[in-house]
Simulated scan of single mutants.
Amino acid sequence: MCRYLWEAQKIKQATIHPDTGEKIPMPFRMSDSVPFGTPVVVGLLLPNQTFASTIFWQWQSQSNNACVNYCNRNATQMWYISIPTPMSKFFQGYLGAVSSAVTIAVGLNLLIKRAEHFSPAIRILVQRFIPLPAVASANVCNVLLMCHTELSEGISVLDDKGNVVGTSNIAARHALMETSLTRVVLPMPVLLLPSLIMATLERLPLLQKHPRLGLPVHSMVCVCAFGLALPVAISLFPQNSQIHVSELEPEIAAATECKILTYNKGL
């Protein structure tokens, strides 16, 4: 019985937003990131991309990230005062992230294509690593722009009984820093490992004789890398993080006797 209750609790945590109690759409749950996000990862890592395909896959990547950030954001302050997060913040984060990702990816591609001293093989290899700085920087931009309201208005901090002590801008900065670091770490193995592994596998006689196997093998490698990277990145910081009351605003420290307060950093 305890096992079923534990499993039911885990399913609830994976599907229900902890602040609003609303059901998170399946494509934007962190638990469903691997099946829904792998096609985008495969597209980002395709070799010999044109400018059009680079823009398309960076747009797809940051469109998905914007929705994930919005659906998994900290909503304690908005829920507590019954004011919904304005959709304008969503579009600001979306446009900012897409613009930064496309600009960096296209700019790096231009530099590589103008580097005449690179051999074709080295050029293809370098192009495979271009998505990493583009996606990592855009992910941070996405988080900061999507959660700008948290920085300006703060997030709720709770005592050990789950009661709201107050709203803290300092806790909001901690939450965004932790989330941003998670978004930087997440694409590293996802975008690095497949490129390194495929560069080795493509030299094997099997893939050289049957080049059509390249895409299925590439997809499987991306699935494995994504499945490995996601739990590692998410586990860097707990969703319900703790902070010592001495690090928060004086008015919050004066409002409670608890030494450690909790806040939802989002995912």
Results as ranks from 00 to 15, higher is better:
C2N: 11
R3G: 00
R3E: 07
Y4M: 13
L5M: 09
Q9P: 00
K12M: 13
I16P: 05
I16M: 14
I16K: 01
H17S: 10
P25H: 03
P25V: 11
M26W: 09
R29Y: 02
R29G: 05
M30H: 01
S31D: 05
N48D: 14
Q49E: 06
S53V: 10
S53W: 15
F56G: 06
W57M: 09
Q60K: 08
S61Q: 11
A66C: 12
Y70A: 04
Y70W: 15
C71M: 12
C71V: 00
A75T: 02
Q77T: 03
W79T: 05
Y80A: 09
I81L: 09
I83A: 07
I83D: 11
T85F: 00
P86C: 04
M87A: 06
S88V: 14
F90V: 09
F90P: 05
G93K: 02
V98C: 08
S99D: 11
S100Y: 02
V102I: 15
A105W: 00
V106Y: 00
V106L: 05
L111P: 11
I112N: 07
I112S: 12
R114G: 02
F118H: 09
F118I: 13
S119V: 02
S119Q: 12
I122C: 06
R123P: 03
R123Q: 14
I124D: 05
V126H: 03
Q127F: 10
I130L: 10
V135F: 11
N139T: 07
N139P: 07
V140H: 08
C141I: 15
N142A: 01
L144T: 10
L145D: 04
C147F: 13
H148F: 13
E150V: 04
E150P: 05
L151Q: 10
L151E: 11
S152F: 10
E153A: 10
E153D: 13
G154I: 10
I155M: 11
D159V: 01
D160P: 02
V165H: 01
A175F: 04
L176F: 10
M177V: 10
L181V: 13
L181F: 07
R183A: 06
L186Q: 05
L186P: 00
P187V: 00
M188V: 15
P189H: 06
L191E: 12
L191Q: 04
L191P: 06
L193I: 15
L193G: 04
P194I: 01
L196H: 06
R203S: 09
Q208P: 07
P211V: 04
R212F: 07
L213W: 14
G214R: 14
C224A: 15
L230P: 08
A233M: 02
A233Q: 03
P238L: 08
Q239V: 13
L248Q: 12
A253Y: 01
A255Y: 06
T256V: 10
C258I: 00
K259R: 14
Y263W: 02
Y263K: 03
Y263S: 13
K265L: 04
